[in-house]
Design a protein around this nucleic acid. Sequence first.
DNA 1: CGCAGAATGGTACCAAAGTATGACACTCAT
DNA 2: ATGAGTGTCATACTTTGGTACCATTCTGCG
Lengths: 159, 159
Amino acid sequence: MNSIRQRFSTIRHFVLYGVALALLVFVLKWLHWKFLITDLAAELYTGLIAVFFTILGIWVARQLGRSSSTPGAAEVDTIPLPPTGDKINMVELEKLQLSPREYEVLQLLARGYSNADIAATLFLSVSTVKTHVSRIFVKLDVKSRTQTLEKAKRLNIIE
Amino acid sequence: MNSIRQRFSTIRHFVLYGVALALLVFVLKWLHWKFLITDLAAELYTGLIAVFFTILGIWVARQLGRSSSTPGAAEVDTIPLPPTGDKINMVELEKLQLSPREYEVLQLLARGYSNADIAATLFLSVSTVKTHVSRIFVKLDVKSRTQTLEKAKRLNIIE
DNA sequence: CGCAGAATGGTACCAAAGTATGACACTCAT
DNA sequence: ATGAGTGTCATACTTTGGTACCATTCTGCG
């Protein structure tokens, strides 16, 4: 519950969601009108709705997935992590006191992402990524991203 | 694309996907017929398609989400993950055609060593280490040491 | 309300990583 | 002996990573 509230707590998210919904209604109305004119549009109608809602579903899943992958979030909202082989060491993870955002960055870091990659993925500036990464270094007591990877792998705090 | 293939590699996935598609076609056909009878069904038609594809989108996202990582280079791996335990995957290791010295460097690299660290450990100059590392990058098809670590971990070619 | 903490972003600067290219010596098999 | 492969090292250059310091905005809490 908290994580959902947290996700949509910023104004930006509300605006984005609103715009998306408005766009959806608009497209549906337009398609509906178009649909009444010619029968050929029926297939197009179906197809477009399918594509739109598939993308919407992906987006929803990603939104939910983000909040479910944060540490310290005691309650996970309905969506459990997909069956991963080895479990993440939550004990060690809690010890590090990483913020949710920092853990997100850490996960991308562990996949070999560059700062620019992380920035692009999370829609951040490189500056912000650097800030997060630096804080991660302090909390993990390491001096480089390769050491971070090694330690994260050793502590088993990433999938 | 390859990650998708990887996801659908098991027979169970094929069966599930086939059943889902068959069900979809059936429902669509039925709804289409129903639609010709009464105009009220149009809204239901749209709604059901929307719900179905939203769920499909969520499913797709969750299938792709946890394993597909596309850093800047946008290169995809064809290698199926070997479910080996702790032993080093000699098969993959041989494929890479790393020279003995290169493998030595790789092992230190995987421990989070900097180029200077590696040079000091192996009694080499930093230049030499850089050369080795560059060749490792080419053979592993990566662009940075963090990507190297990630891939080496995934291929299970280091301890 | 005011404050702490999280998240974001910026500038400036230095260190490290990475690329490109060339060179030299050694081994080993054809 | 010749060429391929390896290992070594160098210079010059570009890119990325990392640190330090500061500012702004938003949220949660007492």
